[in-house]
Nucleic acid binder design. Sequence first.
RNA 1: GCGCCCGUAGCUCAGUUGGAUAGAGCGGCGGUUUCCUAAACCGCAGGCCGCCGGUUCAACUCCGGCCGGGCGUACCA
Length: 574
Amino acid sequence: MPTGSPLDHFRHRLTAALAQALGIVPESIKLERPRDPSHGDFAFPCFQLAKERKQAPPALASEIAGKLAGLEHISAKTAGPFLNFTIDRTELARRVLTAAFDPAYGGGNEGAGKTIVLDYSSPNIAKRFHIGHLRSTVIGMAIRKMCEARGFRVVGINHIGDWGSQFGKLLTALRRYSSEAALDAAAATGTAIEHLHEIYVHYHEDEEKGGDLAKELAAESRKWFLDLESGAENEARRLWKKMTTLSLAEFERIYRRLNVTFTEIRGESAYEPDLAPTVRRIKEAGVTRISEGALVIDVEGSEKPALLQTGDGTTLYLTRDLASVFYRKETYKFWKAVYVVGSDQRDHFRELKLVVKRLGLPWWDDIEHAYFGMMRLPEGKMSSRKGRVVILEDVLDSAVEQVRTLVREKNPNLQHADEVAEQVGIGAVVFNDLKNDRRRDVVFSWQEVLNFDGETGPYCQYTHARLASIVRKSGQTPSAEADPALAGEGAQLLLAIGRFPETVALAAERFEPHLLASATVELAQLANAYYRDHRVLDAGSQQLVAARLALVEAARRTLARALALLGIAAPAEM
RNA sequence: GCGCCCGUAGCUCAGUUGGAUAGAGCGGCGGUUUCCUAAACCGCAGGCCGCCGGUUCAACUCCGGCCGGGCGUACCA
């Protein structure tokens, strides 16, 4: 697969030469990157072939070395059972610099003509946006940008949780512990969601007491939700609309700060008209049965059936997700439908796929759950119902405030200091959520999100600012046409820049932003090492200044582009 | 109980899908600012890769068992 990497050229040369020397097809040649860069740029271990050919691996390695032909600009060397290859530094610099100066560097076209419907963020109405919601939001946004860079059409959908039986509870809570007037008053001071959240917590406290009270609450809530699902323009609907509007305003404020956008904000309630037809469609397929009063469907690999409708006739999460996946397939003809949703819902998405499969739809396996690990607190699982959450805006505010203090002390004359503090503070929080394998559970730690040293967003941003500063102070416009023979001195940095497109391709293919995030840290580390060892502005000859400047600019552009794909700003100064 | 996921340095994590002496960051200790921003850089200390067995020329990586943790386990989402 062409990745658009300037290293592809060398790789192709190598696999072709090796295939010819060995008399096998190029596709079966697997090149590796040596652990130790001093061994070379590419490696070919000979163990497996040696075994097949009943030869000693080192003997085969030197035999191949003798037969290699057409390795223009690549030198080969054996190291025991390994064949190591090193790219000619001048040719490496020439190709990498030219590629990296292209504004679309890192892009590709393997996604051309393919549509990905990506479901991310999807918070619940009437609950505060907490640190756990951040994961889906920023992981989803990074996946979207990476996939778009690789040529996919991505439809980003915010599947707002604005439907379901919890609205019955919320309406009950509003009537019992508060009033519409009190909600309006809270809205006037911008605290409507806090207010709703509080009464929601109150409800669950009472519910936990059990007894008659809990029964009353449950009955009342059921009635409210039935009213809502009746479709009539009644009291329930009017209040529901009000809560929805108020919540969306808070979400908008956060998305603006995070620079997160959607193609479509379409809540679960939008599928309300599709629910009855969806249930009918599944019933008509003859795969449902009634169990304990509920409409269920059996799915393979599980003795428990999936529930489509409750004994009351109200719908469930699964029903609404089925309606929405049908809508998405019909509307967007997706190549893949990807859900950036927590790992606690793995069984749910397995059920969703298997129900679609049972309906005989061939695209069932195009549904993919790009799950992420749970965000927990040191004291245990977060819970909106128990009010035990870390509010995202508090985290963002703390991070920005802390950066503001740092800027004042480190760079007091900085222009637009507030804007930079916002970019770096947000960058720290976002990067912190992207840097590890998304499937891992994380325990929230203030100390970690507020750390700006080492493998962090601010470290990458700082490196970018340093590179930008060198270019700015040179007073020159860097050019990729600089003498590649001189730029070759930064081989490790050139290689890291050269790997960028294939990293984006892999991260997009696996929906794994952390692959890009860790490559970005590595790039920043190598850039730091480069300008530590190679003075740019006082390099001596004009040719050497131009060559080093070209490399600095190539690194700067790649770093900026990587951060952009991760949804992080790259200020020129900080 | 059953199912899925995880266990790598004091802490948080990488480890290119089986290859060369297991790598970073934080924290600790020691250094580097008349030198393009010290949010940086350099050095040191710190590892039976949870445990036991198996497959393989080769296992942190694959398989089985055990121990420890997380999540899920039909009328919430």
